[in-house]
Amino acid sequence: MLGELSELQMETLLKQQVIGRIACQADGVPYIVPINYFYNGTHIFFHSAIGKKIEIMRKNPKVCFLVDDIKSVFKWQSVIVLGKFEEITDMAEKERAMQGLIHRIMPFADNPKDHPSHGIAEKEDDIATRLELVIFKVIPISKTGRFEN
């Protein structure tokens, strides 16, 4: 049976998952990549090194975010969020976002102390010299959810 997720079911799925896919487009070229995230019930928070997706979202802040839970071909749930990319510049908000991301992601990490590409390492110098980390959020405009059971 195919169906629509309720608002509560969509919120639950967004809060349960850790990896989604963010889609963006600029100059007529679409781009989609998997990404770690943290959802606080209002915004979806991310971090990334500067690269293609950040460059695209800076040009065009309209994004689409997908998260799903696939048990089998005939048993799955998915939520699609249409929203707006916003780079976080306020240091206090950046710190809160990173703490939320670290808290959410680290239980799934093989070696939690050594992930400099995620802004996490035993020595702070290992992070700062290797990459410029961008902390950003997606401000949801609308969301839809579907399932098959």
Rank of each mutant, 00 (worst) to 15 (best):
R96Q: 13
F46K: 10
H115K: 11
E86S: 03
N111A: 05
E124V: 11
Y39R: 00
R21D: 03
V63S: 07
I141L: 12
L8D: 15
D126N: 14
G100M: 10
V67D: 00
V81A: 01
F136M: 06
D110H: 13
D126Q: 14
A92M: 05
D69F: 01
P112E: 06
I120S: 06
E122W: 09
T144I: 13
S72H: 04
A128T: 10
E87L: 10
K59F: 08
G83C: 04
V63E: 04
D68S: 08
K52T: 13
I70F: 09
F74Q: 01
E7R: 11
P61L: 06
K53L: 01
T89H: 09
P112A: 08
K53R: 14
V138Y: 00
F38T: 05
V138R: 00
M1W: 04
N149S: 14
F85T: 04
L2G: 03
F136W: 07
A26H: 09
A23C: 10
Y31E: 10
A97F: 12
G51T: 02
D90I: 00
R104S: 15
A97I: 03
G83T: 03
V73I: 03
E11Q: 13
F108K: 12
D125Q: 07
Q77G: 00
H115P: 00
P30M: 05
I35D: 07
D68N: 11
I105E: 15
R146A: 06
R21V: 04
P116G: 09
M106S: 15
S48I: 07
T12P: 01
N36G: 15
I141A: 07
G28P: 07
Q16P: 05
E132H: 14
S78W: 00
E122T: 14
L66G: 02
E124S: 12
P116N: 07
F147I: 06
T129L: 11
E95Q: 13
Q16F: 08
I50F: 13
A121K: 03
F147G: 05
L131K: 11
K75W: 08
F38Y: 15
K123H: 09
R58E: 15
Q16G: 10
